[in-house]
Design a protein around this nucleic acid. Structure first.
Length: 627
RNA sequence: GGGGGCGUAGCUCAAUCGGUUAGAGUGCCGGCCUGUCACGCCGGAGGUUACGGGUUCGAUUCCCGCCGCCCUCGCCA
C-alpha cells in the first residue's frame, strides 16, 4: 500500500505530483459523465475527480462507491479552475485526477453520520464510538490530548523526571471514594482494589531516592457519575524530593505554560475553535490567593476569577444589630450573613426569575434569599421596610452599592449554607452578565488551606486535605500534640482547650496544600508531605488516629518514612477536566476516547456483564441477589 | 439512594381533546444530469411508537411497572 500523502495534507504546491491517498468515502457527487468523491482521512478531505471520457473504468468504479467505503486512489494533483475552487476546504485549491481507484473495503451504513456538526442522542455516540471517533472534532480532540501529554513529558523529562508506572492492582483504602475491587484467585476471599490515585506509591518512589517521579496515571473511583466525572480518569501525577511549595508551583506553571503554547502553535488545531487557541499566552507567575480570601470574597475555595469584580460582602457584624429578625438571629447565633452586589441589575431579573433564585437558595437549605433594589440612595423590595434609614445607608456603604444595583443577601445559622448559596448566586449573575467567556483563562493558585476541619457533631478534628500534608506552623502543631497527649480525658479539642489553645487557634492552622484553579474548576492539587514519622504521629494524634490504626492503615508508608524519607511534595492534575476547559467541551466523555455512560456502562462493548459460574466458583464468590 | 427530563423510520423531530392508512427533513437504495462540493431533479424502500401490563369501543397520546440515556442533590480530591 504505497500511500504517499494524507488526504487533508495536499495543497497547491503538490500540483503536478503523482500521489496515492487512502481513506473513507465522505460524500459522492454524481454529475453523469463526471463523478466527484471526497475522500477523508485523519488529516482532512480531498476531492477525487473522475471523467467518463478520459477513464471509463475508474469512472464506473467511482460510481459504485458508497459512503464510508474504504478506498485507495492514485493520480495527479491538479489545480482547480479558479471558478471551481472551494474556499471552505483546506484542500479546496486542488483535486486528484484519479488514474487508479481501488476498493479496500465496503461498509454498512453507520447508525450515526460522520459529520462535524452531528447532533444526536449521546447514547448512540457511545454505542457506535468507533464511528463517532471518525468525526473530525473527535479526532482533533484525541490529537490535542496526545499533544498535551507529549508536551508534559517533554517538560518533565527536561527537568530530570523519571516516568514510573505504579500498580493498577492496588489495595483498598477505607477512606475517600468507593473502591473498585478485584477478587484474587490465588487467595479466595481476598481482594485487590484499583487505585483512586497513586498517592502512596509516589511517596514510596521518593523514599527510594528516585528524586523526581511523574506518571500519566489512571485513577478509579466507584462513585456516581456527573458531566465532569468518569469512573476512570487520568492524572498527570508528579512527586519531587528536596522541594518546598514554591518549587512545585513553579514547576507546574512551566508545564502548563508549555502545553498551552504547544497546543496554540500546532497548525492542526488552528481552526478547531478551541478556547485554548484563542486564549493567548498565560502569564507566570500565576496569581495566588489564600483560602481565607477566596472564601471571604467568593464563598468557594475554587473561585472563578473571570468574574473577579463580583465580590461578596460579609454583613454578619452589621446584621447583629439590624432590625430584620431573620438576619439578626442568624448573625447573633454564630451564623453568617453575606451579600452579592449585582451591578446595574436592579431590573435584570423578572419576578419569576427572582422566585427561581429563592427556590434555588431554599433547595440548598437556606430559609430564603433577600433581594433589594438600590434606588437613588435607598432600598426597594419586599423587606426594605424593615430597615430604618441609617441601616439602609450603612448597608449601602458596606456593599459599595450604586443606584441601579441589585443586592442579593443570604443569612443562615450555618456558614456552609451561606457559602453554598452565595457561590451559586455569584455564578448565575456572572453568567447573566456575560463574564464567563470560555476563551478567557483565569488561573489562580489557592494556598494556605486550613490544616484541620472541625466536625461539631462528633467534636472531632479531621485533616482537611489528607493527613500526610505538612503543616505550616510545625512547632505549634507539635506543641499541641504534646499537650493533647498529656491526658486521655475527653476529646482532643477539649484537651487542647484545657491546655490553653482555643478552637480558633487550632482552626487557624494552615497546611502546605496548593490547588490550581482554572475558571472555577480545580484542575490540579497537591501538597508538601510529612516526611518524618514523629511529625506524622503528632498530626495523627490531633485527628484522633491511634497508633494501632495508623499502623494498620498506613503501616507500610510509616515504615518507609522511617527509613530515611527525604523532604518531598507533589501535585496531580486532572487531564480530562483540563482538556474540557482547553477545548470548550461540555462533558468529560468528549475529552476521552472510550468513555463510560453516566451509569458507568460501556455501551459499545456492553460491560459490566456477568461471568461464568465456573469462574465465580474458582474465585470463591457467590452472587447474592438484592432482596 | 432521592428528584427531574427524554425514548415515534438509520438519524433529528411532528402527529389537535384519546379517533381514518403515524408524517416531514435528512440519511439509505435506484434512475437522470459534464464542474459539483450540504450538488440538483425524479422515484422507492424503511415503523412491534423502548419494553411489559392496565383503563377504554379505540392508546404514540392517560395510568402503573420496567429498561436505557441525560441532568441534578447526596456521594466523590
Amino acid at each position: 500500500m504505497t500511500r504517499t500523502h494524507r488526504c487533508g495534507e495536499l495543497r497547491r504546491e503538490h500540483a503536478g505530483q503523482n500521489v496515492t491517498v487512502c481513506g473513507w468515502v465522505d460524500t459522492k457527487r454524481e454529475m453523469g459523465a463526471l463523478v466527484f468523491i471526497d475522500l477523508r482521512d485523519i488529516a482532512g478531505k480531498v476531492q477525487l475527480a473522475f471523467d467518463i471520457e478520459k477513464d471509463p473504468a475508474n469512472h464506473a468504479a467511482a460510481k459504485s462507491m458508497h459512503g464510508e467505503y474504504v478506498a485507495l486512489a492514485s493520480g495527479v494533483v491538479r489545480l482547480r479552475d479558479p471558478k471551481n475552487v472551494n474556499p471552505r476546504l483546506a484542500t479546496g485549491d486542488i483535486e486528484i485526477a484519479v488514474s487508479r481507484l481501488e476498493l479496500l473495503n465496503t461498509a454498512k451504513t453507520p447508525a450515526i453520520e460522520v459529520r462535524d456538526d452531528l447532533k444526536c442522542d449521546p447514547e448512540l455516540r457511545l454505542k457506535h464510538r468507533f464511528i463517532d471517533l471518525r468525526r473530525q472534532p473527535m479526532q482533533r480532540m484525541l490529537q490535542g490530548r496526545a499533544a498535551m501529554i507529549r508536551s508534559m513529558r517533554a517538560s518533565l523529562d527536561a527537568q530530570g523526571f523519571t516516568e514510573i508506572e505504579t500498580p493498577i492492582l492496588y489495595k483498598r483504602t477505607p477512606e475517600g471514594a468507593r473502591d473498585f475491587i478485584v477478587p484474587s484467585r490465588a487467595y479466595p476471599g481476598q481482594f485487590y482494589a484499583l487505585p483512586q490515585s497513586p498517592q502512596l506509591f509516589k511517596q514510596l518512589c521518593m523514599v527510594a531516592g528516585l528524586d523526581r517521579y511523574y506518571q500519566i496515571a489512571r485513577c478509579f473511583r466507584d462513585e456516581d457519575k456527573r458531566a465532569d466525572r468518569q469512573p476512570e480518569f487520568s492524572q498527570l501525577d508528579i512527586e519531587m524530593s528536596f522541594v518546598e511549595r514554591e518549587d512545585v508551583i513553579a514547576l507546574l506553571e512551566g508545564v502548563v505554560r508549555n502545553f498551552m503554547r504547544d497546543l496554540q502553535q500546532d497548525v492542526r488545531f488552528a481552526h478547531t475553535g478551541w478556547p485554548v487557541v484563542k486564549a493567548g499566552e498565560i502569564k507566570t507567575p500565576i496569581e495566588r490567593m489564600t483560602y481565607e480570601t477566596a472564601m471571604r470574597d467568593y464563598s468557594i475555595d475554587r473561585p472563578d476569577l473571570r468574574s473577579r469584580e463580583l465580590k461578596l460582602t460579609e454583613l454578619t457584624d452589621w446584621a447583629k444589630t439590624c432590625s430584620f429578625n431573620a438576619f439578626k438571629q442568624a448573625a447573633a447565633g454564630g451564623g453568617m450573613v453575606k451579600a452579592l452586589r449585582c451591578p446595574g441589575m436592579a431590573e435584570a431579573f423578572s419576578r419569576g426569575q427572582i422566585g427561581n433564585l429563592e427556590r434555588d437558595a431554599k433547595g440548598m437549605g437556606a430559609g430564603g434569599l433577600a433581594s433589594l433594589k438600590v434606588l437613588d440612595g435607598k432600598l426597594d423590595g419586599a423587606i426594605a421596610k424593615f430597615f430604618p434609614e441609617a441601616e439602609q445607608q450603612s448597608l449601602l456603604a458596606a456593599c459599595k452599592a450604586q443606584p441601579g444595583d441589585l443586592l442579593l443577601i443570604c443569612a443562615h445559622a450555618k456558614e456552609k449554607v451561606v457559602h453554598a448559596v452565595m457561590h451559586h448566586m455569584r455564578t448565575l449573575v456572572a453568567e447573566k452578565l456575560g463574564l464567563l467567556d470560555p476563551a478567557k483563562f483565569a488561573l489562580v493558585w489557592v494556598i494556605d488551606f486550613p490544616l484541620f476541619e472541625f466536625k461539631e457533631e462528633e467534636e472531632k478534628l479531621y485533616a482537611s486535605h489528607h493527613p500526610f500534608t505538612l503543616p505550616q506552623d510545625l512547632d505549634l502543631v507539635r506543641n499541641m500534640a504534646q499537650a493533647a497527649r498529656r491526658s486521655s480525658e475527653g476529646s482532643v479539642i477539649a484537651r487542647l482547650k484545657a491546655a490553653g489553645y482555643s478552637l480558633e487557634q487550632v482552626l487557624g492552622l494552615r497546611n502546605n496544600q496548593y490547588d490550581l484553579v482554572l475558571n472555577g474548576v480545580e484542575i490540579a492539587g497537591g501538597s508538601i508531605r510529612m516526611h518524618r514519622t514523629d511529625w506524622q504521629q503528632d498530626v495523627f494524634e490531633l485527628v484522633g488516629i491511634t497508633k494501632e490504626e495508623a499502623e494498620k492503615k498506613f503501616g507500610f508508608l510509616m515504615n518507609a518514612l522511617a527509613h530515611g524519607a527525604p523532604p518531598h511534595g507533589g501535585i496531580a492534575m486532572g487531564l480530562d477536566r483540563m482538556l474540557m476547559l482547553l477545548m470548550g467541551l461540555d462533558t468529560i466523555q468528549d475529552a476521552m476516547a472510550f468513555p463510560k455512560s453516566a451509569t458507568g456502562r460501556d455501551l459499545m462493548i456492553d460491560t459490566p456483564n456477568e461471568v461464568e459460574k465456573k469462574l465465580l466458583d474458582e474465585l470463591g464468590i457467590q452472587f447474592k441477589p438484592a432482596p
